[in-house]
Computed example of a mutant assay.
Amino acid sequence: MTAQRLPVVLLMGPTASGKTAAAIELVEHFPVEVVSVDSAQVYRGMDIGTAKPGPEELARAPHRLIDILDPAERYSAARFREDALAEIAAIHRAGRVPLLAGGTMLYFRALSRGLADLPDADPVVRAEIEEEARHHGWAVLHQRLAGLDPQTAARLHPNDAQRIQRALEVYRLTGQSLSALTAAARTEPFPFRLVTWAVAPAERRVLHERIGRRFAAMLRDGFIDEVAALRRRGDLHTGLPSMRAVGYRQVWEYLEGRFDREDLEQRGVAATRQFAKRQLTWLRRERDAQWFDAADGRLLRQLRDAMGRVLDSR
């Protein structure tokens, strides 16, 4: 079979939509291997707040590209694309089907469509932007970005510090907007046959309820202690991508005494809902995606049937 006919299945969905359970189900029924598409699960020691599969789940369905970095390190969409293509090739060589499951939509986009030719991170420029944010707040920097790159600003939440910083950094380094550079990028052809699935509850209310229950469960399971241990290391701070992951920044601020525990839960749930909203916005741009209702009791059967069709078409 030519490379162009070898299938790669993308299992996308917002947080708390049941992607891990679905992936395990497919691994247990088909010759499938999972590659994680999650910008937070790459970090070691960040288990509870990222909803990382536990030891029993990983024994049933090993996940590639989790626990590959220390939280002090930085990861990028470009590096993910390189790593994921290597894992896909290895899975194909073993005669199996790669199942890329997760919720980091930028990584999915980078994998399937390639990346713009953007400048590397510049520590000096980043430090300048972070200093401005400390004085004025990220909402003000978001307004500045809207004046420079309204297209990028429109798709970013005013509290999305990491992406606001990157967009401003790109502009200061190149004199061009991130949206313009991205639009001018040469699309790199994906060398395999893509099958794209989107898993999400049909009703937003269901997703919000799931997010609330899961964040409460994370707190019960020791999320605060997990972040406290990371803070005690002394080499981590909220400017790092790892500590900007949804939930971690809120717990970090709670540990600094900025608000009480009840407020922590409210803030954590609200931040996660905003994150899920952004994920769904990305998902709706996937024109070729087949949608599955995460709240449908027949979901796992439907996914098994869909995977069966993928295998039959090889």
Rank of each mutant, 00 (worst) to 15 (best):
Q4L: 02
R5F: 09
R5G: 05
P7Y: 06
V8Y: 02
L10P: 00
L10E: 06
M12C: 09
T15K: 12
S17P: 05
T20M: 00
A21R: 11
E25W: 08
E28R: 14
V35Y: 03
D38W: 03
D38F: 00
Y43C: 04
G45L: 09
M46N: 01
D47H: 07
I48C: 01
T50L: 10
A51C: 15
P53S: 09
P55A: 12
A59Y: 15
A61R: 00
D67F: 04
D67G: 11
A72Y: 09
E73D: 13
R74K: 06
Y75Q: 08
A78L: 14
F80I: 07
L85Y: 06
A86I: 11
I88H: 00
I88M: 04
I88W: 00
A89Y: 05
A90M: 03
A90V: 05
I91G: 05
A94E: 15
G95T: 03
G102L: 02
Y107S: 04
F108Q: 02
A110G: 14
S112M: 15
S112G: 13
R113Y: 15
D117S: 14
L118M: 08
D122P: 09
P123L: 10
I129D: 00
E130F: 04
H135T: 11
G137F: 00
W138C: 07
Q143M: 07
R144I: 12
L145R: 00
L148N: 01
D149S: 07
P150A: 09
Q151Y: 10
T152S: 06
T152P: 01
R155D: 13
N159K: 14
A161W: 12
A161N: 03
Q162A: 11
R163F: 12
I164Y: 01
R166K: 07
V170H: 00
R172H: 09
R172C: 04
L173I: 12
Q176R: 14
L181Y: 09
T182M: 12
A184Q: 15
A185E: 03
R186T: 04
T187W: 00
T187I: 14
E188M: 08
P189V: 03
F192H: 15
A200R: 13
A200H: 11
A202Q: 13
R205F: 02
L207I: 13
H208G: 13
G212K: 10
G212N: 09
F215Q: 06
A216I: 03
R220P: 06
F223D: 01
F223I: 05
E226H: 04
V227P: 00
R231E: 02
G234M: 00
P241R: 08
M243Y: 10
A245M: 10
L255N: 06
L255E: 06
L255D: 03
E256F: 05
G257V: 02
F259W: 10
E262P: 01
L264I: 10
G268K: 04
G268S: 11
V269K: 03
A270E: 14
A276L: 04
R278F: 11
R278A: 12
L280S: 13
L280R: 07
L280T: 10
R285W: 04
E286W: 14
D288L: 12
D288M: 11
A295L: 07
L303I: 12
L303G: 01
A306V: 08
M307P: 05
M307S: 03
D312C: 11
S313I: 10
